[in-house]
């Protein structure tokens, strides 16, 4: 799959691995892909983010803060937290109680398994889905290469924390498509 990735896209994936390692996460997740995209100062994704108001360090920091907030909710999106609240389950309360006993960040880890050695982190299921969606997005646009902009587009297509945080900052599949490919174009599903 990676042979068709542009240099920028490879750099984003590599940056995501570093973010996962830095955070002590058990797998490289969609969230790490977004954090890595935010670090970039060149490339089409970076251009699109800047065009949509995420050019300033402050706005990017706001996205990082929102991602950190989701980690405090055990990685659940606000939509998921609301759905649980509908059942009478307060996810933030559960996280707070677990952290009281097991330490801050105890509930922000990956899905399963013990800590892996550095350099042996696999892509998590959601990150793999993002890469696959990027591949399909590029194919649908008849782009021969998979660029960092396809990764960003894919992040807005998959329901979850990164898409929700991006949407809160005005970055949706629609707004991205407009700045990347010009206005008036029909949105892909």
């Amino acid at each position: 799959m990676f042979e068709r990735f542009t240099k920028d896209a490879r750099a984003v994936v590599q940056g995501a691995v570093e973010h996962a390692e830095g955070a002590g996460a058990r797998s490289v997740d969609a969230e790490h892909l977004l954090l890595s995209l935010l670090d970039r100062e060149a490339g089409r994704a970076s251009f699109a983010l800047a065009a949509l108001g995420l050019g300033s360090a402050g706005r990017r920091e706001s996205v990082r803060g929102a991602l950190a907030g989701a980690r405090r909710r055990a990685g659940l999106s606000r939509a998921e937290t609301d759905a649980l609240a509908g059942l009478g389950i307060d996810a933030t309360e559960i996280v707070a109680r677990v952290e009281e006993v097991h330490g801050v960040g105890a509930m922000s880890g990956g899905r399963a398994g013990g800590a892996r050695r550095p350099g042996h982190r696999g892509l998590g299921r959601d990150a793999r889905e993002i890469l696959e969606k990027a591949l399909r997005t590029a194919a649908a646009r008849r782009d021969r290469h998979i660029g960092d902009e396809h990764l960003l587009l894919a992040l807005t297509l998959r329901p979850g924390v990164p898409a929700e945080v991006l949407a809160d900052h005005g970055i949706t599949h629609g707004s991205l498509t407009r700045v990347l490919y010009g206005g008036g174009e029909a949105e892909a599903g």
């Binding site: 659940l76 998921e80 937290t81 649980l84 389950i89 559960i94 509930m107 880890g109 899905r111 399963a112």
Partner: peptide
């Protein structure tokens, strides 16, 4: 789905 994820983490 959210409950399942919460359960996995717990």
């Amino acid at each position: 789905a959210a409950l399942r994820r919460l359960l996995e983490q717990l």
